Amino acid sequence: MRTGFLVVCLPPLLLVTSAACTNAADGKGVASVDGSARPSASQSLSRVDQFLRYSQCMRKEGVPMTDPEVEGDNVRAGTYDKDSVDMRKVAAAEEACKQYRPPRETGPGMALKDELARRFARCMREHGVKKFPDPNPDGPTQTGPEVGQDPQYREARTTCDAQIDAVSASLRPSPS
């Protein structure tokens, strides 16, 4: 009886097992109801690699952005000279490259960064750049081309950068 059971059950079991362990010839390889799912070929990129791709894309779009800056565990996006770049070109490049920009960081240090960004925006408006926007809660402050072309922009930026640097230094914990 046991031998008959094995003879009847073993071939279908082997057939099902072998079919489950093979790859599809079309390379899709992921089951879905409508057939739209595709396997991911890339692993998650580090924050540095994400910012590097973003910088490369921005350069491809005509914005001379530097590679990301790394200081210990802190990774910042590359920079460009806002005074020498057409802000319309920057806005178009940011839109074209947005899929490469990593998501906004979260954590305790972000509260300080958010506060400094709010103070910077307020300072810029107080120093004559009336259209300088409040910071974007989901990422970097998006300024339109009219902001960088404001005649007060360069002087206000110099003043506000210095004020924010001083405030930032006073709020950071002192090294022990």
Rank of each mutant, 00 (worst) to 15 (best):
M1Y: 12
M1N: 11
L6H: 09
V8W: 11
L10N: 02
L10D: 02
P12F: 00
P12G: 01
L13F: 10
L13W: 12
L14K: 04
L14Q: 06
L14W: 04
L15R: 07
L15K: 00
V16S: 13
A20W: 11
C21R: 12
T22K: 00
N23E: 15
N23K: 13
A24V: 09
A25N: 11
A25H: 04
D26L: 00
D26N: 09
G29C: 02
G29N: 15
V30T: 09
V30R: 08
S32W: 05
S32N: 02
V33P: 01
V33F: 10
G35T: 01
G35P: 00
R38V: 14
R38M: 08
S40N: 15
A41W: 09
S44E: 14
R47L: 15
Q50D: 08
R53S: 14
R53D: 11
Y54W: 11
S55V: 05
C57V: 00
M58L: 10
M58P: 01
R59V: 11
E61I: 08
G62T: 08
P64H: 05
P68Q: 06
V70I: 15
G72E: 12
D73E: 13
D81G: 10
K82H: 11
S84F: 01
V85R: 06
D86P: 00
D86L: 02
K89Y: 03
A91D: 08
A92L: 12
A92H: 06
E95I: 05
Y100N: 10
Y100L: 08
P102Y: 14
P103Y: 07
R104D: 02
T106S: 10
T106F: 04
G109P: 04
L112Y: 09
K113F: 14
D114V: 01
D114I: 07
D114L: 07
D114F: 05
E115F: 13
L116C: 05
R118E: 15
R119L: 09
F120V: 06
F120Y: 15
C123T: 05
M124A: 09
R125E: 10
E126D: 15
F132N: 02
P133I: 02
P133H: 04
P135S: 03
P135M: 04
G139L: 05
P140W: 05
Q142F: 12
P145F: 03
P145K: 04
E146V: 10
V147C: 01
D150H: 12
Q152F: 06
R154E: 14
E155H: 05
A156P: 00
T158A: 13
T159P: 01
T159F: 08
C160Y: 00
A162M: 06
Q163C: 12
Q163R: 14
D165R: 11
D165Y: 01
A166S: 06
V167T: 13
V167R: 12
S168L: 04
R172Q: 15
S174L: 14
P175F: 08
S176E: 12
